[in-house]
């Protein structure tokens, strides 16, 4: 029984680590237009890093039929756009302040974030 309990709590720790504490190592900064595919419950890539002050266009291509995926919203940018099926929808963002801008579907099931980094010399 002890083993089972330890296993159970190990599993809980794993969940906490995997879903909340884990920080992805991919720190590549992109420029210009970033294609993002919406399919199977996820945005790919789900994390986009850009430099502050630069124009970035997120080009969403929705392949998922589920109605949940049909709207992408950036809550702290007051953006909410409908994504047509199998067609790209460009969302252009200009001169953003450094920070994290999460985007998601209306039900918060599809989740991604746009990370705007400060200039390297700052």
């Amino acid at each position: 029984m002890l083993v089972i309990n330890i296993l159970g709590f190990a599993l809980i720790s794993l969940i906490v680590w995997w879903f909340w504490l884990y920080k992805p190592r991919n720190r590549m900064v992109v420029k210009g237009t970033v294609p993002i595919t919406v399919n199977n419950g996820v945005y790919t890539p789900a994390q986009v890093r850009v430099m502050a002050g630069e124009k970035v266009t997120l080009s969403f291509l929705r392949k998922d039929n589920s109605p949940c995926s049909s709207i992408v919203q950036f809550n702290n940018l007051e953006i909410s756009e409908e994504l047509p099926l199998n067609k790209t929808k460009d969302i252009s963002l200009e001169s953003l302040e450094p920070g994290t801008y999460p985007f998601s579907c209306q039900m918060q099931m599809y989740r991604g974030e746009l990370i705007v980094e400060g200039k390297a010399d700052e």
């Binding site: 884990y22 419950g41 996820v42 789900a46 099931m109 989740r111």
Partner: peptide
Amino acid sequence: RHFYIGAWKSFLNHSANMD
């Protein structure tokens, strides 16, 4: 199938959803 694919994909993404 769509539940399992969705669950797996979002797991790889460190996120979890209804799937």
